[in-house]
Design a protein around this nucleic acid. Sequence first.
DNA 1: ACAAAAGTGTTTTAGATACACCCATGC
DNA 2: GCATGGGTGTATCTAAAACACTTTTGT
Lengths: 234, 234
Amino acid sequence: MKRNSFRKHISVDCVIFGYDEENNKLEALLIEQKEPAKRSPMEFVPQFALPGDLVNEDEGLDAAAERVLKELTHVEGLNLRQFYCFGDPMRVKQAKDREWLNLYRSDPEARVITVAYYTLVRKEMIRPVPGSFARNVVWKNTKRVPPLAFDHNSIVKRALDNIRLHLESDKIAQELLPEKFTMRQLQNLYEAILNTSFDKRNFTKRFKKDDVIVELEEKQKGVLYKPARLYTFK
Amino acid sequence: MKRNSFRKHISVDCVIFGYDEENNKLEALLIEQKEPAKRSPMEFVPQFALPGDLVNEDEGLDAAAERVLKELTHVEGLNLRQFYCFGDPMRVKQAKDREWLNLYRSDPEARVITVAYYTLVRKEMIRPVPGSFARNVVWKNTKRVPPLAFDHNSIVKRALDNIRLHLESDKIAQELLPEKFTMRQLQNLYEAILNTSFDKRNFTKRFKKDDVIVELEEKQKGVLYKPARLYTFK
DNA sequence: ACAAAAGTGTTTTAGATACACCCATGC
DNA sequence: GCATGGGTGTATCTAAAACACTTTTGT
């Protein structure tokens, strides 16, 4: 009992950003809460929420976040970054979240603080599967995130701020582009994440100078217009 | 029992940086662990540590950090910034920390994660008092931080990285200079925090352009050389 | 007059921005 | 030959860096 009380109080939540190269959109992976097998006495209104879970007694925070991510995406080795810890005593006391807590938590009254992580993936690289808590998994455009359970809207917001701040320094782009990519792909990615647009020539110049990418001899194939030169990260 | 288990597992730690204007140094406030009134069976070896405490059941994280800070310094309203959550399951299992845990924790085996905050103060503005856990309180130069309890050395290191990263954007300087200050004072501060040195003329130019400070008509008084113009933050 | 620190301007370099036309390819 | 996106250069502006001498004050 003593040894198990840790597990009630600390969770991790993951903001998994998916880059949709096709449509040049940045999306976030949300789960839709699962209805109980037997209908509970109150109406259960499923909400969207971030994937997350309580941290196990002997588990590191980073490890817990990785576990959550793996359960959902079956992908390992993604670069998860902790960005903030949310601990308002009221964060887990709102009426809208009552029912879910009653259904899924051994101690629904317990105060829970959550350590938040974000990561970025190429949307088409993963086929998320609803885990134990979810009846469904959906991608939502980061520009139009629906109301979420708990304080998850603030978590997403802060995650976005963080990514934008660290895009340059954090080698984020490398996780979101294929091995070989065109300048246009790189530019689209930056524009999607930062929600702006750049001048093509200036953008190219910037990256050719910064020696983080190398020009390949190879060119794009199978496109119905002038094929673009390919680049790769150093 | 159920209701109290939260309090075992989450702490806050504060990295309180003190700017020593006189000697142009950036220091960190550490406590020296207190020996028990009655000597414990094992030898108790006091260590230096960051001020911190367990978070109370109904207390927000920010509020807990403020409480710790207030207890130590009797100063309120300082701008505390959360910067990372440290949660390695082993962080509280090292032999060197065993005795202290036995003495001061109701459940010395409990896993504890800590949410870390930093703040900056003018060193001479506070007269820290040893609280309940401390037999002493000391300022240590950030360039020579001694070995600390738990994982506190990594916490200090990360706090420093964070300050340096956010010095410009976070209006940190405003908390560390008097209402009216000279260019030299501002420059000294920047040099102490970033651990570099700047060209006087370039430094001046930079700040006159950024309109965050305003030139006053007033000048320094009581100095034995040419008195400098005073500035103030907007 | 001397000691001490304040105050100040120009030149160079690098990066950021603005801007428009021709090119290579598949059909 | 046409539609589609690829690829490129120049001019301007702003910010950062390097650099040294004169001024003001108290004693």
